[in-house]
């Protein structure tokens, strides 16, 4: 080809130098440009996870975040959410090492009395189709929100009713939402607890509940130290426990 540069030493150095210079300058500029959106996206993601698990709030939980170091070296992160200065809930980023394959990170939201408000699974490496079901398994099922598939819709047209989603009592035993780990045994029913494990994924279920329990224990420890309102909560918790045990006594 005409005008092709010879592969002399000086040519090679010069060309590579110019290319890398232009490339690094361009990337440096772009990095500055995208730095802000990237940081914002990261923050949004965290905020979204917090919003999902605690009641509506008007503060910035990330600013009031505090950490508790666990013996394993990892940290639990606490995000208090307040509405008009009053604590409405706390999102806890918690984890367990007992997953089917290592760490499971969960964001779980507690109401001030320690009742689970909602949760969201952040990160895990559980078996797809088994352990991964934890993302929705422990939430109550809302039959009105179940999306129908195309086949079911077509079936409906010709008069076949879609299978009803299990709600009610059976759905309740799976759900941890609205339950307090202080009064309800947060272990799988196979181990004598009150929560139904994911079918064929007992280990993942155990791990998940372990993460929630860890968060609850640390949360209550923290609350004991600084919340005055706690006394009231605690007594109500114990009275609940009392009624609970009464109920159980009656059953047996």
């Amino acid at each position: 080809m005409a005008g092709k540069k010879e592969s002399t030493f000086i040519n090679m150095v010069l060309v590579l130098f110019i290319i890398t210079l232009v490339a690094s300058a361009a990337l440096g500029g772009l990095y500055e440009l995208t730095k802000e959106p990237i940081a914002k996206a990261k923050l949004n993601k965290k905020l979204k996870a917090i919003e999902e698990v605690v009641p509506a709030f008007d503060n910035n939980p990330s600013e009031e975040m505090y950490e508790v170091a666990m013996p394993s070296g990892d940290k639990l992160e606490f995000y208090p959410a307040t509405m008009g200065g009053k604590l409405v809930g706390t999102a806890v980023k918690t984890f367990t090492t007992n997953g089917f394959s290592g760490y499971v990170w969960v964001m779980v939201g507690f109401k001030p009395d320690g009742t689970v408000n909602n949760y969201s699974v952040l990160e895990h490496k559980e078996t797809p189709g088994l352990g991964t079901k934890m993302a929705d398994w422990f939430k109550p099922v809302d039959p009105t929100k179940v999306k129908l598939s195309l086949v079911e819709k077509l079936g409906k047209l010709v008069g076949i009713k879609p299978a009803a989603t299990k709600g009610g009592a059976e759905g309740d035993k799976k759900s941890i939402v609205g339950k307090n780990p202080g009064t309800i045994n947060f272990t799988v029913s196979k181990d004598g607890g009150d929560i139904d494990a994911i079918t064929a994924a007992t280990i993942s279920s155990r791990a998940f509940l372990d993460a929630v329990q860890t968060a609850y224990n640390e949360y209550m420890k923290k609350n004991n130290n600084k919340e005055i309102s706690h006394v009231g909560t605690h007594s109500s918790a114990t009275s609940k426990q009392a009624t609970n045990s009464n109920k159980e006594g009656g059953k047996s």
């Binding site: 080809m1 540069k5 592969s7 090679m12 060309v15 590579l16 290319i19 990337l27």
Partner: peptide, 23 residues
């Protein structure tokens, strides 16, 4: 491409491609 000597063709291409990937 006409300005790039043959012997440094591949490294130059890689730098150019890598820049766009980073973008």
């Amino acid at each position: 491409s006409t300005m790039i000597p043959d012997k440094v063709k591949i490294p130059s291409f890689i730098v150019i491609i890598a820049s766009f990937v980073t973008i």
